[in-house]
């Protein structure tokens, strides 16, 4: 389906740009200091939205390169944060090489390989590379932390990209980039909604040891907002019935919440606040894709099981 000015993706992306302009105007009023965190955060949102818009409207190769780059930056940030062994330098190099390979399987639409390459083959191969080097001190920790990183930053995030290549012939109004846009929008707006509802009404801490800012009220507000948005957006971008749109919204809201918490637990364990400084105002790239590492695979399988 060729992209035109009236395609659902163009219209909704236009809406996102309009929303961001509005948010920019509001934040510029609220935060007069030019380098305040809120302003930095909005600036970074512009970068994210511009890059996503380009990736989703240009062509499939551009989109695969973009999501591959996101996986690479996320894995690099993760490996920078965790302690790694000097002996594993070659192994880490192989781990990075799995990124182009994983995205290549998506490019050639080989679902069977896409779904087992990292959980099976990389899982078995990287420890082989480690034992061939011969360093046994800290082997389990090194193999375990590396595979956790590959699963989250490469395997999970690459499900976003596989949405692009799901066969859509049976649903004329649905496109791969549309499904990706639906997932990205709901995941990120769910984060924003949970944050805003939490600020407005938050009283009861939901997980005081992992993330003291999360509240029951913020979580509930996020779920309701995301389910509503899902029902609103689903007819434009997805083949979902109203019932499935409700379910997809709830799934994304709950999964996004736990993805966020899972990365918060990691950061707490490492004793850091932000995962990096790639995105001023947000922190690192992991601070932005944390929810996606949960929503992407779960939404993908929900959609694939019910519709493709």
């Amino acid at each position: 389906m060729p992209l035109t000015l009236t395609s659902p993706i163009t219209v909704i992306l236009g809406g996102v740009w309009a929303l961001l302009m509005l948010a920019t105007a509001v934040v510029w009023q609220l935060a007069p200091a030019p380098d305040s965190e809120l302003r930095q955060r909005i600036r970074s949102w512009w970068l994210i939205v511009a890059l996503c818009s380009l990736a989703l409207t240009f062509n499939r190769i551009a989109a695969l390169l973009f999501f591959g780059l996101v996986s690479f930056l996320a894995l690099k940030e993760y490996l920078t944060l965790i302690p790694t062994r000097h002996a594993d330098r070659r192994v880490l190099f192989w781990a990075y090489l799995s990124i182009p390979v994983q995205y290549y399987w998506i490019g050639i639409e080989w679902y069977g390989m896409f779904i087992i390459f990292i959980p099976v083959y990389m899982f078995l191969l990287l420890p082989v590379a480690m034992v061939l080097i011969g360093e046994t001190q800290g082997h389990l920790r090194a193999a375990g932390t590396l595979h956790w990183g590959l699963m989250s930053m490469v395997f999970s995030l690459s499900h976003l990209a596989f949405l692009l290549v799901l066969p859509q012939a049976q649903y004329p109004h649905v496109s791969g980039p549309g499904l990706v846009l639906f997932l990205l929008l709901l995941t990120e707006l769910n984060d924003v909604a949970q944050f805003c509802w939490g600020k407005l009404l938050g009283k009861h801490k939901i997980s005081p040891t992992v993330s003291p800012n999360k509240t029951v009220e913020g979580f509930a507000g996020g779920v309701v907002t995301t389910v509503l948005l899902s029902v609103l957006l689903a007819p434009w971008l997805t083949p979902f019935s109203v019932r499935d749109a409700l379910l997809a919204g709830a799934l994304i809201a709950v999964a996004g919440f736990f993805g966020d918490l899972s990365l918060s637990a990691l950061k707490r364990d490492l004793g850091i606040k932000d995962s990096g400084n790639l995105l001023p105002g947000h922190g690192g790239i992991l601070d932005r894709v944390d929810s996606l590492t949960y929503t992407a695979p779960l939404f993908f399988h929900f959609t694939r099981y019910l519709y493709f």
Binding site: F72, K76, E77, L79, T80, T84, H86, R89, R90, L92, F93, Y96, G276, L278
Partner: peptide, 18 residues
Amino acid sequence: CGLGRVLPKGDWLPVPFF
């Protein structure tokens, strides 16, 4: 900070880190 992880003394293969 960190460049000694990317390309330490005695190695020729750079490995990405921030």
